[in-house]
Lab assay of single mutants.
Amino acid sequence: HRQALGERLYPRVQAMQPAFASKITGMLLELSPAQLLLLLASEDSLRARVDEAMELII
């Protein structure tokens, strides 16, 4: 289940942060499945989480 969510998330994360897409997707997969579904449904929520992840990385 998580694998399938990751496969759906990755291209969207890659479009926002290509250099760190794998790392960010891995970080996002730590969230609950319900939270992941919310990110897939909301571009704004996904962008906010990706921005948060980038702050942790750099």
Rank of each mutant, 00 (worst) to 15 (best):
A19S: 10
A15Q: 10
A34D: 08
L40C: 03
A19C: 08
R2M: 15
K23Q: 12
Q14E: 13
L40V: 04
L37M: 13
L9C: 02
L56P: 01
D44F: 05
I58H: 10
A41V: 12
K23L: 11
I24G: 00
R12Q: 10
G26D: 14
S32F: 05
L46N: 00
V50A: 02
R2Y: 07
E7N: 06
M27D: 01
K23I: 14
A19P: 03
L31K: 03
A15I: 08
I24R: 00
L56S: 11
L46M: 04
E7A: 14
E30R: 14
A41M: 13
G6S: 13
L56K: 13
A34E: 13
E55F: 12
S22P: 06
E43K: 08
T25P: 00
D44I: 12
M27K: 04
V50C: 02
I24T: 00
S22L: 14
I24P: 00
S22M: 15
L29I: 06
V13I: 14
E30Q: 12
Q14W: 12
P18A: 06
S42A: 07
R12G: 04
L46W: 02
V13K: 02
Q35A: 13
A48E: 09
M27L: 07
M16K: 02
A4G: 10
A15N: 08
T25V: 15
P18I: 06
R47H: 05
R12Y: 11
A4R: 09
L39A: 07
A53F: 12
L46P: 00
G6Q: 13
E43Q: 11
L9V: 06
L5K: 02
M54E: 01
L9G: 01
P18C: 06
Y10T: 03
P33Y: 13
V13L: 05
A34C: 06
L28V: 01
L9Q: 01
D44C: 08
L39W: 02
D51K: 15
A41T: 09
P18E: 06
S32N: 09
S22R: 11
L46H: 00
S42M: 05
K23N: 05
R12W: 09
S45H: 11
E55Y: 14
L36M: 05
F20W: 11
F20V: 03
P18K: 05
T25A: 04
A34G: 08
E52I: 06
D51L: 13
L37Y: 13
E7L: 08
A41E: 08
V50N: 00
A48I: 12
R12H: 08
S32R: 06
R12F: 14
L56V: 11
S42K: 07
D44P: 06
T25K: 02
A4K: 13
K23P: 04
L40M: 08
R2I: 15
A21E: 01
L40I: 07
R8V: 12
S45K: 14
Q14H: 12
E30D: 10
G26V: 12
G6N: 08
A4Y: 13
A48V: 10
Q3I: 07
L38T: 08
L31H: 05
L5E: 03
S42D: 10
L46S: 00
K23T: 11
L56Y: 15
M16I: 11
S45L: 14
R8S: 09
R2E: 13
D44T: 12
G26C: 10
H1Q: 13
A41P: 01
I58N: 12
E55M: 14
L9A: 02
L29K: 03
P11H: 15
A41S: 13
H1C: 09
L29S: 03
S42V: 05
L37P: 01
Q17M: 12
E52N: 06
D51V: 11
E43W: 11
S42N: 14
D51P: 01
L40R: 01
E7D: 08
S45P: 02
P11F: 15
L28D: 00
P18V: 04
G6C: 10
P33E: 13
V50F: 01
I24K: 00
V50Q: 00
M27A: 04
S42R: 07
D44M: 09
L5F: 14
E55R: 14
L39C: 06
E30M: 11
L28I: 05
L9I: 09
E55L: 15
P18L: 04
L38G: 08
L39N: 01
A19I: 13
A34T: 12
Y10Q: 04
I57Q: 02
R47Y: 04
R12M: 15
E7R: 15
L40N: 01
L36F: 03
A21M: 01
I57H: 02
L5S: 03
R49G: 05
A15Y: 08
G6T: 11
L28A: 00
L31I: 08
S45I: 11
A19T: 11
I57L: 10
V50I: 09
L40Q: 02
Q35T: 11
V50S: 01
K23V: 11
L5V: 07
Q35E: 07
R2W: 07
L36P: 00
A19V: 13
Y10D: 01
A34L: 09
A19F: 14
A21H: 02
F20E: 04
K23S: 07
L37D: 05
R12I: 12
R47F: 04
P11R: 15
T25Y: 11
D44R: 10
S32H: 08
L38M: 13
A4L: 11
L31R: 04
E52S: 07
L39E: 01
M27Y: 06
S22V: 13
R47N: 03
K23F: 11
R47G: 04
P18Q: 04
E7V: 12
G26S: 14
H1T: 14
R8T: 08
L5R: 02
S45G: 07
F20Q: 05
M54V: 08
M16V: 07
A15R: 10
A34K: 10
L46C: 02
Q14I: 10
Q3V: 12
Q17P: 01
M54W: 05
L29F: 04
L5Y: 08
L31T: 03
R12N: 04
R8K: 12
A48N: 09
S22K: 13
P11V: 15
R8I: 15
L56E: 10
A34W: 12
L46G: 00
A21P: 02
L46Y: 01
L31E: 05
S42Y: 06
Q17T: 08
A53W: 05
I24M: 01
Q3H: 10
M27W: 11
M27Q: 04
S45A: 15
Q17F: 14
V50H: 00
S45Y: 14
M54G: 01
R49K: 11
L39G: 01
R12E: 05
L40D: 03
P18S: 06
A53Y: 14
L37F: 11
L56T: 10
Y10W: 09
M27H: 03
Q14D: 05
L28E: 00
Q17G: 03
E55T: 14
L29G: 02
L5A: 04
R2C: 09
F20N: 05
G26L: 15
K23H: 07
Q14L: 15
A21S: 04
L37K: 06
L46V: 01
Q17S: 09
I57G: 02
Y10M: 07
T25D: 00
Q14Y: 15
L28P: 00
L40A: 02
S32E: 12
A53M: 11
T25L: 12
L38P: 04
R49Y: 14
E55G: 12
L5C: 05
E30N: 10
D44Q: 13
L38H: 08
L9R: 01
A41H: 11
I58W: 13
S42P: 01
R2H: 13
I24Y: 00
G26H: 14
Q14A: 14
L56I: 09
L39Y: 03
R12S: 06
V13M: 02
R2N: 14
H1Y: 04
L39I: 11
A4V: 12
R49Q: 10
S22W: 15
Q14V: 11
L31C: 05
Q35I: 14
E43V: 07
T25R: 06
H1R: 10
Q14F: 15
P11S: 15
I58M: 12
T25H: 05
L31P: 00
I57R: 03
A21I: 01
Y10L: 09
L9T: 02
L40K: 00
Y10S: 03
R8D: 06
L5D: 03
A4S: 12
